[in-house]
């Protein structure tokens, strides 16, 4: 502990110098646009590589990684956890928060009953089915209902 106390000023100074050096170069680092320049059609599974060259620039990941294939849609959480700023060029926050939110007022599949083509959780009579699915894979419940969105759960689970 004493050793760390002794070297802390040196570490802090080194850190400060590095931060200042980084800030000086910030203006040269490119950024994504705020929004996608073209309006994308609703209901179309977006394929980024249709328009974008399938290669990476700088530290951007290859565009084909973000083609909205069924596999991408099913596993979008992996992409959103590190590339949320890329998602936000096309999707408003509300697009995500129809499902991922603190209090969902109604099942997304009911809110968007006119859009059966969209992948939505808990379609049909999930009230019955959750008694099986909850025992099978409780982690899948926890992701959305563990830290938020518990109103339906606590009605029975006490």
């Amino acid at each position: 502990m004493k050793f760390f106390q002794q070297i802390f000023p040196a570490l802090a100074l080194a850190g400060l110098i590095m931060i200042l050096a980084a800030c000086a170069q910030m203006k040269t680092i490119p950024g994504l646009p705020a929004s996608h320049p073209e309006t994308l059609a609703a209901g179309q599974q977006v394929s980024c590589t249709e328009c974008h060259e399938d290669n990476q620039k700088g530290t951007l990941k290859a565009y084909n990684a973000f083609n909205h294939s069924p596999a991408f849609v099913k596993n979008h959480r992996f992409y959103a956890s590190s590339d949320e700023r890329l998602c936000s060029t096309c999707h408003k926050s509300s697009f995500c928060n129809d499902c991922h939110t603190n209090q969902v007022e109604m099942k997304p599949s009911i809110k968007y009953g006119n859009r059966p083509d969209r992948d939505m959780p808990h379609r049909g009579n999930f009230m019955t089915m959750h008694k099986i699915e909850g025992k099978l894979d409780p982690a899948s419940c926890y992701r959305c209902h563990g830290r938020a969105n518990n109103e339906r759960c606590i009605t029975c689970h006490r």
Binding site: P30, S93, H100
Partner: peptide, 22 residues
């Protein structure tokens, strides 16, 4: 949103989805 480096600052009520944090 800053013009460079994908930098942004948010203030208010919002969601954080970064790495293992939700």
């Amino acid at each position: 949103r800053f013009k460079a480096a994908n930098a942004d600052v948010r203030a208010g009520r919002f969601f954080v989805h970064e790495g293992i944090v939700n």
